[in-house]
């Protein structure tokens, strides 16, 4: 699938009608979401034929994008049932099978090495301090291959240090900088559009046991 085609399909998704400020529910726009998943697949082969989980999936944009790029199995996880219902509608509209779990990401417990890739647009932690690192830490525990995440460019140095030191990341790499066009979602946004610079990150988790090491070896084969 071409990038433009992916972006077009994501542009047709239904977004939050009443976003919840305490959960920092900002929709992941089609521009950013399409580039994120397209890069994950075309540069690293982390989506097609993989088991993908979308942490804090909201209305399911990244989960849907993964399924559109032929992830073999996609799970969207969110604390908010209304968001999950919206995600289900969005998946149904495009005739995609996506599993959904209602759970607070910080209490999530995913076993084994089944989940290859975690994708997420975490809360930036502006309303609840540390929420972004909580998501990242859980993502690196769940994924056996890679975690793709968006973080404010202004926090780049901090994210890198924290990921490597505290979150079990073997590597942390900024793939590109994107403009996050936040439409005026909440009343406290004074300007009509808030343009925030965000980094698209790729984190590789440390191998958890021998079978992971073996998998990393397998990945290198052509």
């Amino acid at each position: 699938m071409k990038l433009k085609q992916l972006e077009g399909l994501l542009g047709g998704l239904t977004q939050f009608s009443n976003p919840k400020v305490e959960l920092e529910q900002y929709a992941t726009g089609p521009h950013i979401a399409s580039r994120m998943l397209y890069t994950a697949e075309n540069s690293f082969g982390d989506i097609t034929g993989k088991v993908v989980a979308d942490f804090g999936c909201g209305c399911g944009t990244l989960a849907v994008a993964s399924a559109l790029l032929d992830a073999e199995h996609v799970t969207g996880i969110d604390i908010d049932l209304q968001s999950l219902e919206l995600a289900q509608e969005n998946a149904d509209d495009l005739e995609l099978d996506i599993d959904l779990i209602q759970c607070d990401i910080k209490n999530l417990n995913l076993k084994g090495l089944l989940v290859d890739t975690v994708v997420m647009n975490p809360p930036f932690g502006t309303k609840r301090n540390g929420a972004d690192m909580e998501f990242l830490s859980m993502g690196l525990k769940a994924a056996s291959q890679a975690v793709y995440s968006l973080h404010k460019t202004s926090t780049r140095e901090y994210i890198k240090k924290a990921a490597l030191r505290n979150c079990n990341a073997l590597s942390a790499e900024v793939l590109c900088e994107l403009r996050y066009d936040l439409p005026q979602t909440y009343e406290f946004h004074k300007k009509k559009e808030v343009d925030v610079a965000v980094d698209l990150w790729r984190f590789v988790p440390r191998a958890r046991d021998e079978s992971t090491a073996e998998r990393h070896g397998n990945k290198m084969r052509p």
Binding site: H73, N107, K111, L114
Partner: peptide, 13 residues
Amino acid sequence: MRLLTHNFLASNM
């Protein structure tokens, strides 16, 4: 929910 999901989901109480 499909059974692949069941195979990696655990309780965390």
